[in-house]
Structures are given as C-alpha cells and as structure tokens.
Write a protein that binds this DNA or RNA. Sequence first.
DNA 1: TAATAAATGACGCATTTGCGTTATTGAAAT
DNA 2: ATTTCAATAACGCAAATGCGTCATTTATTA
Lengths: 216, 216
Amino acid sequence: MTVKRKNIRVVLVEDHPSYREIVSEVIQSAKGFSLSAVFENVDDALRQMPEADVILMDIGLPQRSGIEGVAELKKRTDSPRIIMLTNFTDDEKIMQAIFAGADGYLLKQIPGHKLLDAIVETMDGGTSMTPFVARRVLEAFKTRAEVKDETTENISVREQEVLGLLVQGYNYKQIAEKIFISPETVRNHIRNIYEKLHVHTRSEAVSKAIKQGLLK
Amino acid sequence: MTVKRKNIRVVLVEDHPSYREIVSEVIQSAKGFSLSAVFENVDDALRQMPEADVILMDIGLPQRSGIEGVAELKKRTDSPRIIMLTNFTDDEKIMQAIFAGADGYLLKQIPGHKLLDAIVETMDGGTSMTPFVARRVLEAFKTRAEVKDETTENISVREQEVLGLLVQGYNYKQIAEKIFISPETVRNHIRNIYEKLHVHTRSEAVSKAIKQGLLK
DNA sequence: TAATAAATGACGCATTTGCGTTATTGAAAT
DNA sequence: ATTTCAATAACGCAAATGCGTCATTTATTA
C-alpha cells in the first residue's frame, strides 16, 4: 500500500520548439511530476497560467522577456516558484532575473535528472543555481559589498533608523517628522553616527552605511 | 585501451571524527578521486598542505576557523579550489567565507554523489552551492543592490569622475582641486548629475550611484 | 550606588549646498 | 552649416549642514 502523493505540477515557458520538446519529455516521463501547461511566450503564459507548483521560464524570450514574466508573476498572490533557464551568453540578464525575484537559475544544458532535482529543491524553499551562474552572482556580489571594518562602532537601533532615512535622502526636518522627534535630536543622532563611523559628511555616512551593510 | 586520466586530488579539513570518516569513505571509494590528506584543524592544514586540486573545509572549526583557513590558502599562488562545508546554523559565516574567496558552499548533509558532482563542477570553474546557501546569498544580495532603473540617463565620463569623489565625501572645493577645475564647474556637474539621476541631494546621489553600480 | 550609554532637546554660527540664471568653447551629430 | 551637447566658469541667495556646547531622563552595567 503506497501513500498517495501529489505530483509536482510544472509549467514550461519556452519559445524554442526543440528545447521545448526535450524538456517536456523529461518532465512527463518523470515519476512524481506532471506537466500542466506549455507556453511559447510570456503573454500567453500570463493570461492562461494554470495552478502550478513550479514554472520553468526561458530567460531570453522574444517580445516580453522572461524577466518581465517573472516580475509579473511574482506580483500575484500565491505565485508558484519560478526557475529561469538561461544560456551562457546572457550574463547581464541573470542579475536582472535575480532582482525580479526568480527562485532558481539553471543553464539550459543541464541534464534531465539534475533539472528534476532542482525542481524538487526549489519546491523545498531553496534556490537552485548551476555552478556557472553561482559564480557570476558571487563575483557581482563581491564587487558591490565591503567587509565591515573593525573600527566601526556599534550603531544603535535608533541610529540605524536615522541612518536608513539619511540614505534615502531625507533632511533633518523630514527625518524628524517621520520618527516623531525634534530636528535637533536628529542632528544629535547624526552627529553620533558620524563619530561612530569616523566620518564628517552625509555622503561619507551614506557610502559607509551601504557598503558595509549597516542598515536594517 | 583506456586513456590514462589523473584522479582529482582531494584534501579534507574537518574536526568532527565521524563526519571525517564518512566523507573520507566517499572520496576514497569514488572512481576518479583520491584523498591526498585529512586534517583536523586549520593550522595543521596550512603547514602540511600537499599538492591538491580541491580542499573540502569545514566552516566551523575550533581555534582557527575555516574562514581564516580559506583566506590564508587563497593568498598562496596556485591555491587549489576550496569548497566550504557548512551547517544550517552558521548563517553569518557563509557571507564571510564568500568574501574570503571560497569556491563552493555545501551543506554537510549533502549526499555523497552530489558532493562528488560538486567537486567536479568546482574543478571546472563553477561555484557549487546547495540551494539553501544560494537562497541566503541571494537574499543578502538583493537587500544591498538594485537594478539600474530605466529612467537613469547616461552619466558622462567626467560626471562619473565627479560622482566618484562625491561618494568619497569630498565637497565642491576639494573635488575642484582634485580634478583641476573651478568649484563652480563642479557645482554644474553635480547639478547635471542630479538631474540625470532624478535626485536633489548628495545623499540620494551617493545612494543611487552605489546601489546601481554607476561608478568606475 | 555610581558611572555609563542611549535617547531626547536646544541655541548659535560659519560653511556648504542646491538652484536660478547666464555665458563661452569645442566636438559631434544632422 | 547648424543645432546639440559636454565641459567649462560665474554670481546670488535661501536653505541645509556640521559642530561646539549644554541639559534631562531612563536604562544598564560595574
């Protein structure tokens, strides 16, 4: 007697006919998976999207790109998990897809069994990335961030709050209104923040706050 | 007649005896892999490291952590590729390891065959991450960076130069001295930058410049 | 209990900033 | 040949900023 287990419902969005065939075949022949729908462009997918667990979306679709597709779908409530299928070539788009909120980034030449693994892992709340993509992401990450420097003292909770507003460009008065204190107190907080960060201007404070990840 | 192929030489650094045993077993019994050395702490590993292709390093070692280990090894010429083995718990350390320059981040409970896959993929220049780790990394990434927004016009070379100095906290006069133009011209450049970025203060400009990667 | 730190508030003042307005030069595009 | 644009420069002025100095309250820690 086996426990009745629901299949993982997969939707594929891919314009290239032969690749569409290959992936469809993999999903359909796999135990525990079912292919709910196949679309060849984003517009159709957005209009006719059925209930599903995971969407496999080509990143480089004509007309509306897969990135727009992700962004749209992720706005919906109960959006399924979305895995992007990418080529070696579209390096720039990988980053855009990440910010659009995709849950996985796989190279198209991934073997069938690994694609299935990735779908399961994504269902379990992880983010599947092929090592090539992961490398790109980390490289981009490292160029943007800095390690927190040892001399930076602890910024208090209230100060972090003020610092966050500073980064958004608010002035004394505006910050004061937002957190219901006097502008003079804001000045004092900022003064203290400067001292802790060893800076003397807003720009430097904003710069350090962002680069060192001092916010939130 | 088979082609003679060199084994992938693996080194393991892990303090926990039972886990050490398990991994050693996996490597030794795998075709195409050989276990060159096993260390139980970073100091021994640094002192006696043999030639190897891939190092598997526990991230949470006593005394000198695996993170220090990576940092040290990566300074050496011809450093092998390094894969960190992590637990669910040490979230903060994952980021530190990334900045230390590790080439892979795997959860310890990874099945043997996937560990072997990851070693191969890392050898091929990729970065292997288990989906759990990948998720953490992307979350951290997303909070720090933004996508370049479409409305941002092209910042000219000279303007980028000025913007860079702005981010470093210099004022009109200081920027003027640095690039040998009048402070009034600096004002003009900054004015134009503001217009292109749709901002009205230094803080906002600095913030956008960093988050959108407008520098250099 | 005394010292310390965080959060609050205030006044004065020199400096810096943001913006309106105007103008010249050289290079690139039409 | 002319328009457009980047880079340069200048003046004025209201608003915002950075910093010195001082003070109160409430936690927390030594």
